[in-house]
C-alpha cells in the first residue's frame, strides 16, 4: 500500500492535480505517525501506512484552502464526507486516497496488557491476527483486536466510503459492538447520581487545552462559541461546571457530524473518556433521526435542513 501511495501521490503532484499531499509520515516518537503535509515531490518518500496512523487528517483541507490529495481511513472518510455535505470542503478540490483499515493500534492498551511502558517496548510486529511485542528483550504475543482503539472494534466502515483511489483491497466489516460500546453501556447502567459524580470527577480534570475541539473535524466553526467573549457564554477558566457545559455544547454541536473517529479522546492529555459522550450522541442521532454521519455525500446534513413531514411529537 505504501508504495502505491507514494506512486499515486507523486503523480498527483507532478501532474499538477493537487497543490498538497496530506498523509502520514514517520513520527518522531516510537510507534507514532505524524501528519505529513507537503507540496514537494521529494518528501513523498517519507509517506507511511502502518497500524499507527491514528490522526484524522480530514480537517486539513479546510485550513489549506487548496486542492489536496488526502489519505483517509474509513472513519476519516466519513468526516471528510460530512465536511463535503456541510460545504466546508469541495469534492472537486480533494483527491481521496483511501486506505482500507483493520484498526489503529492504541499503544496505551498494549502498555496495559503487557505491563510495560512505551520506552521499554522495542518492537511491535503484526503477524496475522496477532501482534508480537518485543519489550526489554523478550517477546509477548497479543491479539490484534486487544490492541486497537475501542472505536475500531465497532467499526462498520473499514473501507473508505468515498475515494478516488483505493490503495488496498476492500475489507469487510466485522464490528464487535459489545466490546466497542462496553464503556458506554457501563455508564448507561449507572444510576443517575453515580453517573453525575462520575462526570463531575472527569470534568474536574479538564485543563481547557481545547485539544478535543481542535483535532475534531466536525468542530469547524470559524469562531467557536468558547472564543466569543462578548457576551461570554461559558467561562474560559477551568471549573468543572464550565468544563462540562463546554463539552456538552460541543457534543450537541457535532451531533450528526461526529463519525466516532475518537480523536477527541485520543488527544485529551488528562484522559477524559470523551468518546463515551460523542459515541452516545451518535447512537441518539441514529435512533431519533435514523441518520448516520458522513455515509452519503449527497444527503442533506441532518440538523441543517427540515422537511414538512418531519415528526414533531417532541414539540408540545
Amino acid at each position: 500500500m505504501e508504495n502505491r501511495l507514494k506512486e499515486e501521490a507523486g503523480k498527483l503532484l507532478k501532474e499538477g492535480k493537487v497543490d498538497y499531499i496530506v498523509g502520514y509520515g514517520k513520527g518522531s516518537v516510537k510507534f507514532r505517525t505524524s501528519p505529513l503535509i507537503t507540496n514537494k515531490e521529494e518528501e513523498l518518500e517519507n509517506l507511511v501506512i502502518n497500524p499507527f496512523i491514528a490522526n484524522n487528517l480530514s480537517r486539513y483541507p479546510i485550513e489549506l484552502k487548496a486542492r489536496v490529495g488526502i489519505v483517509v481511513k474509513g472513519c476519516d472518510s466519513r468526516s471528510l464526507i460530512s465536511l463535503i455535505q456541510d460545504k466546508k470542503v469541495n469534492r472537486e478540490d480533494v483527491v481521496i486516497l483511501g486506505v482500507p483499515c483493520e484498526g489503529v493500534v492504541d499503544i496505551k492498551k498494549i502498555e496495559k496488557h503487557i505491563g510495560k511502558d512505551i520506552d521499554q517496548i522495542e518492537e511491535i510486529k503484526r503477524e496475522g491476527e496477532n501482534l508480537t511485542i518485543q519489550a526489554n528483550g523478550s517477546n509477548q504475543t497479543l491479539s490484534f483486536k486487544d490492541a486497537i482503539f475501542d472505536k475500531c472494534l465497532g467499526c462498520e466502515y473499514p473501507t473508505p466510503l468515498e475515494y478516488d483511489v483505493l490503495l488496498g483491497t476492500e475489507i469487510s466489516p466485522k464490528p464487535d459492538m459489545e466490546k466497542s460500546l462496553m464503556r458506554i453501556k457501563e455508564l448507561e447502567n449507572m444510576d443517575a447520581t453515580d453517573r453525575w459524580s462520575y462526570w463531575r470527577e472527569e470534568f474536574s480534570k479538564c485543563i481547557r487545552c481545547y485539544g478535543c475541539k481542535n483535532v475534531c473535524p466536525a468542530c469547524f466553526c470559524e469562531r467557536c462559541f468558547i472564543d466569543v467573549n462578548i457576551p461570554q457564554w461559558v467561562n474560559t477558566y477551568a471549573t468543572w461546571q464550565d468544563n462540562l457545559v463546554f463539552q456538552l455544547i460541543r457534543t450537541l454541536h457535532v451531533a450528526g457530524r461526529c463519525s466516532d473517529c475518537g480523536e477527541c479522546e485520543r488527544a485529551c492529555p488528562v484522559g477524559i473518556p470523551l468518546r463515551s459522550l460523542q459515541r452516545k450522541m451518535v447512537e441518539e442521532v441514529k435512533d431519533l433521526f435514523d441518520y448516520e454521519a458522513g455515509v452519503d455525500k449527497d444527503a442533506l446534513p441532518v440538523f441543517t435542513h427540515y422537511e414538512d413531514t418531519d415528526p414533531e411529537e417532541f414539540i408540545k
Binding site: 505524524s34 505529513l36 503535509i37 485543563i207 487545552c209 485539544g211 481542535n214 474560559t236 477558566y237
Partner: peptide, 23 residues
C-alpha cells in the same frame, strides 16, 4: 507549523509556560 492544530496542550503540559489571563 502546518500540522499544528492550535490547541494548548504543549503550553499546558509545559513546566515553564506561565502565561495567564484574569477574569
Amino acid at each position: 507549523s502546518m500540522k499544528c492544530m492550535s490547541c494548548g496542550i504543549c503550553t499546558y503540559v509545559c513546566p515553564t509556560c506561565h502565561c495567564f489571563d484574569i477574569h
